[in-house]
Structures are given as structure tokens and as C-alpha cells.
């Protein structure tokens, strides 16, 4: 049962016929894991908090650095040197005191990741390395949790949703194979700040859609953005019947 304050706070989305009270309650009752509180994790966490996702679990082992602030908008100058998860918690709590926030300032071991994924309804991958991306994908498919995956660098971004609850959903490992360590980071290659805002916002939108069962999430589709020309491209993904991760599911 929503309080009067909640009805007012969330009124502009509750009035949407796709959402209504039922959708808002789904968000308020949801627990979401956000891995990485950097450029993508900032808008993801802020939009999910503002929309009223009831419980957020924030994971990042890094501290806020001056060079982050050009794009990691959940942090600010006064938080330099502090753990990103704590910085993010303060911003999100100010944005919406109605939600619960758990913070973990650590680099998750595969086992810890598995334990954590099992406790949430959905995972948003905002991390900056391939090893973690593949580990998150494995944990999500093992525990049947939908995964909203995003990545961005320079002027290019990629977003997809992998949902093990759907038998024909491919996974991250159907798209890319594990083992190639050709990872470029924003600190090495650069990134234009609104790019992570755009891709992170798409991730937040997809997470809300999946949680409230709205519309058609990006399952089986990879959305690419070339911000240089502002071209969006949608590519169709297929489940790999030989995939060592998702072929065991469904």
C-alpha cells in the first residue's frame, strides 16, 4: 500500500497506463544489484533510486578521483578520496530517502558475486572489465536473474538485456567469448561524458521495464550507439546452443 507521500513522489510515472500502482509496487519491492559506480553506474543508480526501486545494492572497490568527476555524476568534488559506494549512497539518499541502500566497497570474488546475485531481482552491469562481465553473466544465468549489460568508451556504447527466465534468451557469452583480454578502459582511451549518461539511462530504463514487466526489453537484441554520428543500430542476438553458460538453462 503506497503512502500519500509515495503517491505524490511517484505520481508522474504512476499515471502512465503501463505503470500504475502495480508497476510502482513492483519497483518498491525490488532489490537490484549495481556493479560499478562509475560513469554508467551513476545514472543507473540515480534513476533507479529516483524511480523508487526499493532496495539497491551498490558494489565498487574504488575511491572517487578528480578525473572521475567529468562523467561520474553521482559523485562530486567534496567526495574525492572517499569510497565511491559511500559517495553514491549519500547522493541517492538525498535524492530519495524512501529507499534502502546497501554498499559493498570490495572487488567481488566469484563466490561472493554468486551469493549476492541470488539475493536480488535484477543485476545491472556497469563495471569496467571483461573478467567481471563474464562472472556476472555466469552468476545471473546460474541463479535465473535478469542482467542489464552496458558498456561505453570514447563515443561508442553497447546495451543489451540477458534474461535467463526466457528459454531463448542469449547471454553475454553468446555474443563474446571469454578469454580475450583486449579491454580498453575510459582512463586509457577516453570517453565523452554524456555518452555514459545516455547508455546508463538506457540501462536504467531497461531495468525498470524488466522489473515491472513493461514493454519489450532488449532481450535478444544488442543496441549500439555511435555518438559520433548519433546513429543507433539494433543487432539481433542468437542463443548459442553450445554456450557453456546459457545452454544449460531453460
Amino acid at each position: 500500500m503506497l503512502s500519500d507521500e509515495q503517491l505524490l513522489r511517484y505520481s508522474r510515472q504512476i499515471m502512465l497506463p503501463e505503470v500504475e500502482i502495480e508497476g510502482q509496487e513492483a519497483w518498491l519491492n525490488a532489490r537490484v544489484l549495481i556493479v560499478g559506480l562509475g560513469g554508467l553506474g551513476s545514472p543507473v543508480a540515480m534513476y533507479l533510486a529516483a524511480a523508487g526501486v526499493g532496495s539497491l545494492v551498490l558494489v565498487d572497490d574504488d575511491d572517487v578521483d578528480l578525473s572521475n568527476l567529468q562523467r561520474q555524476i553521482v559523485h562530486h568534488s567534496g567526495r574525492i578520496g572517499r569510497p565511491k559506494v559511500e559517495s553514491a549512497r549519500e547522493t541517492l539518499a538525498a535524492l530519495n530517502p524512501d529507499i534502502a541502500i546497501q554498499t559493498l566497497c570490495e572487488r567481488l570474488s566469484p563466490q561472493r558475486l554468486e551469493e549476492l546475485v541470488e539475493t536480488v531481482d535484477l543485476v545491472v552491469d556497469c563495471c569496467d572489465n571483461f573478467a567481471t562481465r563474464f562472472a556476472i553473466n555466469r552468476a545471473c544465468f546460474r541463479h535465473g536473474r535478469p542482467l542489464v549489460s552496458g558498456a561505453a568508451i570514447r563515443l561508442e556504447g553497447q546495451v543489451a538485456v540477458y534474461d535467463p527466465r526466457q528459454p531463448d534468451s542469449p547471454c553475454y557469452q553468446c555474443l563474446y567469448r571469454e578469454g580475450e583480454e583486449e579491454g580498453l578502459t575510459c582512463s586509457e582511451s577516453g570517453v565523452l561524458s554524456p555518452l555514459v549518461g545516455i547508455i546508463g539511462s538506457v540501462q536504467a530504463m531497461e531495468a525498470l521495464k524488466v522489473l515491472a514487466n513493461i514493454g519489450r526489453p532488449l532481450v535478444g537484441r544488442l543496441q549500439l550507439l555511435d555518438a559520433h554520428s548519433m546513429d543507433w543500430r539494433t543487432l539481433k542476438l542468437k542463443k548459442d546452443p553450445q554456450c557453456s553458460v546459457c545452454s544449460q538453462v531453460g
Binding site: G39, R133, I153, G157, L184, V196
Partner: peptide, 10 residues
């Protein structure tokens, strides 16, 4: 034909 590379940046 479209060829793309995995991105890891977050």
C-alpha cells in the same frame, strides 16, 4: 556485414 568489438568501459 557489421564487425564490432566488445567494449569494457563503464
Amino acid at each position: 556485414i557489421y564487425v564490432l568489438q566488445a567494449l569494457s568501459g563503464g
